[in-house]
Amino acid sequence: MQRILLAGFGGQGILFAGKFLAYMGLHDEKEVSWLPSYGPEMRGGTANCSVILAEENIGSPIVSTPDILICMNLPSMDKFEPAMEKGGLLLYDSSLITRQPEREDIKGFGIPATQMASDHEMPTLANVIMLGKTARETGLCDLSTAEGVMRKIVPEKKQKLLGANLKALALGYEYQ
């Protein structure tokens, strides 16, 4: 079972990134749950989203001790890093979070996703760059599977954005 928590500011695409991971689980025929934080905190404040991928039926859909934590701002990392499961993976946007992870019993991977997104003129796709990195470091799926999932979830009306999304995914996946 993988308990994943994604957190950042409202508007960074945290919920979409969570949805992507849920679809990835669905693609692997896993049991899947996705639970967003909802309410006024989403309007400009912090947003977070619990995703569980499991072989067996999922009980509580709330992730309080994540195996995988994806942070896109400092308040989220300050709040959720201490709650992580031992041996967990922490992926963070190092262009917005300047500190290193404090825990020594977890693995941290920084990626300057927001900077990379703006360098490649896709300022709204830092979340997808994070997803590429997540896919690689967690071994959840390879790049071609991730691309297949992306093709499936970019809505028809937004097909013109598919190319940029695929590029962002690859950028994150290939970042060393």
């Binding site: 949805k19 849920a22 669905l26 899947v32 749950s33 996705w34 639970l35 967003p36 909802y38 999922i58 859909p61 709330i62």
Partner: peptide, 10 residues
């Protein structure tokens, strides 16, 4: 309840 209403599952 709010959890069941907001959560997604396949």
């Amino acid at each position: 309840d709010g959890i069941l209403g907001q959560m997604m599952e396949p």
